[in-house]
C-alpha cells in the first residue's frame, strides 16, 4: 500500500536526520525548545505538521502507530494523519493504546499508563509559554536561558485575581526537572500529572513555530502554582455515561436542544476497552443496544 513516489514516512532521510538531531538535543535538555528547520507538509498548519514531522523522523517499519485527536481515534485529524502514514510508511496502525509503539496525540494523554517501549508525540500549536505576556521572542529566550520565570506566575496571578482561582484549564505551564518552564501543549490540566515520571519518551513538535522539545522517560514535571492556590488536576464531576469510569477525563456531549447531555470518556480506546470488559455507565446499555 506504500506509495512508492514517497520516501519512507514521506520526509527524505536528510530531513529526518536533522529532526532526529533536534530531538536528541531536546532529550538531552528536557523542556528546552530546540529550533529545527520545519518542512512544508502536505497538510495545513494547525493540523499537526510538527507532530507529523517528529513521528516521521522516529518511525520505523516495525512500529505500530496510534493517532488520537482529543483522545479519539476516529476524528478527522486523527484519521487523516493515520492514513498519511499508512500510505507513506505502510506501518501497522492500531487504536489500542497498549499495542502501539508510537502514539501521536493532539490535546490528550491516553488514560492507560504508557510503557518504556512507547513514544508519545504531541502536536504543539504555540510552544512558548511566556508569549502571552512577553511577545518578544528575543526576550523570552533570554528569560528561559536566565531562568527568569516570574512572569509565568503573573499569568496565574491574573487568573486568580479575575476568577478567584487558577482558571487555566489546559496548556497549563509546567517546570521540567526544576529548570525549564514548558508549555505541555493544549492538554487538559487533568493530564498534567501524567507528564511527570512517565515511562514513555514524550516528544513535542511545533511545525509552524519550528520548535521541538522533549521529556525523556521518568522526567520530573511540576505544574506551577502558588503556595496558597495549589495546582489541582480537575475534571467534570461525573462518571462516564458509557463505561462508568470515574477516574477518566470526560467530554461533555449535548444530546438535544432541551438541555440533555452526557459525559463520556474522551479517550475512546479506554472507554471501548472498559465496555468490552463489561463495565456499563448510566447510558451505557442504551448505547450498546444501537
Amino acid at each position: 500500500m506504500t506509495d512508492q513516489a514517497y520516501n519512507f514516512a514521506y520526509l527524505d532521510e536528510q530531513t529526518k536526520r536533522m529532526i532526529r538531531r533536534a530531538i536528541l538535543k531536546g532529550v538531552a535538555v528536557p523542556g528546552y525548545q530546540v529550533p529545527f528547520a520545519s518542512r512544508e507538509m502536505p497538510m495545513p498548519y494547525g493540523w499537526g505538521t510538527g507532530g507529523v514531522q517528529v513521528t516521521a523522523a522516529c518511525l520505523t517499519p516495525d512500529d505500530v502507530l496510534k493517532v488520537i485527536d482529543q483522545g479519539a481515534d476516529d476524528t478527522t485529524n486523527a484519521v487523516s494523519i493515520r492514513k498519511f502514514f499508512q500510505r507513506t510508511a505502510d506501518v501497522a496502525v492500531t487504536e489500542a493504546t497498549a499495542e502501539a509503539t508510537m502514539i501521536q496525540t493532539r490535546h490528550r494523554i491516553p488514560e492507560q499508563a504508557l510503557t518504556e517501549d512507547q513514544i508519545l508525540v504531541y502536536q504543539v500549536p504555540i510552544p512558548e509559554p511566556l508569549r502571552f505576556l512577553e511577545p518578544r521572542e528575543t526576550e523570552t529566550r533570554k528569560m528561559h536561558s536566565l531562568e527568569e520565570y516570574g512572569l509565568m506566575h503573573v499569568k496565574l496571578y491574573e487568573d486568580i485575581a479575575r476568577h478567584g482561582s487558577i482558571a487555566t484549564a489546559y496548556a497549563y505551564p509546567v517546570k521540567v526537572e526544576g529548570r525549564y518552564v514548558m508549555d505541555p501543549s493544549p492538554i487538559p490540566k487533568f493530564d498534567n500529572p501524567k507528564l511527570s515520571d512517565c515511562a514513555a519518551l514524550q516528544l513535542f513538535g511545533a511545525g509552524r513555530e519550528q520548535r521541538i522539545y522533549a521529556l525523556p522517560p521518568y522526567t520530573q514535571v511540576v505544574s506551577l502554582d502558588f503556595d496558597d492556590h495549589p495546582f489541582t488536576a480537575s475534571k467534570a464531576p461525573h462518571d462516564c455515561d458509557l463505561c462508568g469510569a470515574s477516574e477518566s477525563y470526560l467530554d461533555e456531549v449535548i444530546m438535544d436542544d432541551a438541555g440533555g447531555r452526557m459525559f463520556v470518556c474522551s479517550d475512546t480506546d479506554f472507554c471501548a476497552s472498559r465496555r468490552a470488559e463489561g463495565h456499563v455507565g448510566r447510558l451505557g446499555a442504551a448505547e450498546a443496544g444501537k
Binding site: 505576556l133 527568569e148 516570574g150 512572569l151 506566575h153 503573573v154 496571578y157 491574573e158 486568580i160 485575581a161 479575575r162 502558588f226 503556595d227 496558597d228 492556590h229
Partner: peptide, 25 residues
C-alpha cells in the same frame, strides 16, 4: 504591562524574586 492588572504589574517583581504566596503578593 498594559495587559496585566495593576496588582499583577506590582506583583511581577515580587514573583520575579521568588514570591509564591498569592495572598502575600
Amino acid at each position: 504591562r498594559m495587559g496585566v492588572t495593576a496588582g499583577g504589574n506590582v506583583g511581577e517583581r515580587l514573583m520575579a524574586v521568588g514570591a509564591r504566596h498569592y495572598g502575600d503578593i
